[in-house]
């Protein structure tokens, strides 16, 4: 084949792959537009009619009513405690599961497969549903909230941990094994030191998420500030609703900055 013909072939290949890319992007855009239409987003009339209701709600929310702030302190503290406890529990359960669910540390492909499936199942059950179930099981309060948060998180955290473990450099593992390390020692001395930064990152991210999620869990009676939020909503005290939302926002900002600080100093 002469060079020019070879180049033509390469250029034709390149054009074909560009066309494929363009076709794919058009398909995605079409899917987005269709979904917006199917869910009623292009129904201008509904938006037009909702105008007065929205402005009514907004005017009731402003100014926020902070007069009951003292009764919110305890639920906010509960929410914070729930987020920390939920994270701790999630980490303790996730780590051993992740080791069994990573192909390079799993004792058997069947174990690996079963655990991956279990983790997928756990994260596919929303924590709100878990919250409802645990409230039914152990009664109202922070405890069902913590159980719901951690169980749902095990599915997510376990998956991230397992993926971090899966991608470790295998060479130090080989060295540990060659020195006579048991499986446990290989994990302890060769795997964990390599993945610790990623595990920390995932854990801190999850804690930040837990704080936001536990604020919602109160709605189903699983303790924390969400309970107050639900009560204010039920009583149509929208000025209190906005005050509680602002309080949650303030706490989220604090939690996120503590998270950022931890991330930096644990590196």
């Amino acid at each position: 084949m002469t060079p020019s013909r070879a180049f033509d072939a390469i250029l034709a290949d390149e054009r074909r792959s560009a066309m494929r890319g363009a076709a794919l992007v058009s398909l995605i855009v079409l899917a987005c537009l269709f979904s917006l239409w199917a869910t009623g987003f292009f129904d201008a009339q509904r938006f037009a009619e909702s105008g007065p209701a929205i402005s009514q709600l907004a005017s009731e929310m402003v100014p926020p009513d902070f007069s009951r702030w003292q009764t919110w302190l305890r639920p906010l503290a509960d929410t914070l405690a729930m987020s920390i406890a939920g994270t701790a529990l999630a980490v303790v359960i996730s780590l051993p599961l992740a080791i069994l669910a990573a192909p390079n540390t799993s004792p058997h492909p069947a174990v690996y497969f079963v655990l991956r499936t279990l983790l997928a199942f756990l994260r596919s059950v929303p924590e709100l549903i878990l919250g409802v179930l645990f409230v039914a099981a152990v009664g109202f309060g922070a405890l069902p909230g913590v159980l719901a948060l951690s169980l749902h998180s095990v599915g997510m955290v376990g998956k991230f941990y397992a993926e971090a473990i899966e991608h470790v450099d295998p060479k130090p593992l080989e060295a540990a094994r060659a020195a006579g390390a048991s499986d446990m020692q290989v994990i302890l001395h060769a795997v964990l030191p390599q993945v610790l930064p990623q595990l920390t990152d995932v854990t801190i991210y999850r804690w930040e998420y837990h704080f936001r999620a536990s604020a919602v869990l109160g709605i189903v009676g699983a303790g924390g500030i969400g309970f107050e939020l639900m009560a204010a909503l039920r009583l149509l005290n929208y000025d209190q609703v906005s005050a509680i939302l602002l309080s949650i926002l303030a706490c989220v900002v604090v939690v996120d900055s503590i998270g950022a600080f931890l991330r930096k100093s644990l590196k």
């Binding site: 450099d169 060479k171 130090p172 080989e174 060295a175 094994r177 060659a178 020195a179 006579g180 390390a181 048991s182 001395h189 060769a190 030191p193 390599q194 610790l196 930064p197």
Partner: peptide, 21 residues
Amino acid sequence: LRDWRRRSAMIFQQFNLVGRL
């Protein structure tokens, strides 16, 4: 087997250290 590996130490081309440690 682990004790035998302990008695027959190994050194590798790529050193095989844990870089972060």
